[in-house]
């Protein structure tokens, strides 16, 4: 009898050890698969660049200017929703691009409403591009672009008759993933990207 109880007592620590190992394995797998979650950078020549990487971390203006200089596209549309009272960061991005040498007639602005998820903006972009006669676009977004988000956006544009490539600033992605667990904004950006991608799946208009 004592032997039986003794055996049972020994099983518990072993079970906890197994659970701990499984959790550690899952965390390690999640950590190493993080780069797989995010989309790869892709650049294809297009008629227009849709510049959405206008935020404190992306350094999107410089990247879009570089693409313009390389002849990837001859037109730029800077788009943003408001970031403060009647202040749209797209206006400043346009001024910055012009200061870097892009002719004013080649940079336009699109002011966006404040919507709940990224997918809700896609019809606005597609309508805006079609109304101006563009049939191909290179979309530059923040470095938290996921594979799923990239595929969803490109498929949407394609269905609307627009050839699209969605990309980001490669330097900004490298900076974001560099020892991300030590910096608040990096960990926050990654956690929000994971969270938003998951939550979007729950809502038909965001999928």
């Amino acid at each position: 009898m004592i032997g039986v109880f003794g055996k049972r007592r020994n099983r518990k620590p072993r079970r906890w050890l197994r659970v701990a190992c499984a959790i550690a394995g899952l965390l390690a797998a999640a950590y190493f698969s993080l780069p797989l979650f995010f989309a790869p950078a892709r650049v294809e020549p297009a008629e227009v660049i849709l510049h959405l990487a206008i935020d404190p971390r992306s350094r999107g203006d410089e990247y879009v200017h570089r693409l313009y200089q390389e002849g990837v596209a001859r037109r730029i549309i800077a788009a943003s929703s408001q970031i403060s009272w009647e202040v749209y960061s797209a206006d400043f991005a346009r001024a910055h691009l012009m200061e870097m040498g892009v002719p004013a007639e080649n940079v336009s602005i699109l002011h966006l409403p404040m919507l709940e998820c990224g997918a809700e903006y896609l019809p606005i972009f597609a309508d805006h591009l079609k109304a101006r006669g563009f049939s191909s676009v290179l979309v530059v977004v923040s470095p938290t672009l996921t594979r799923w988000g990239q595929r969803r956006s490109e498929n949407y544009f394609r269905a609307a008759g627009i050839e699209a490539t969605v990309t980001f600033v490669p330097e900004a992605r490298a900076a974001m993933l560099d020892r991300w667990w030590r910096t608040h904004w990096k960990a926050q950006a990654i956690a929000l990207a994971l969270m938003n991608s998951t939550i979007d799946l729950l809502y038909a208009r965001c999928r």
Binding site: I54, D55, P56, D61, I83, S84, W85, E86, V87, S89, F92, A93, A95, H96
Partner: peptide
């Protein structure tokens, strides 16, 4: 309060103006 959001724009200055 605010942050330097993009080139030429600080959200704190915009909030102050408002």
């Amino acid at each position: 309060s605010g942050v330097p959001y993009a080139w030429g724009v600080h959200t704190g200055d915009a909030a102050k103006r408002y």
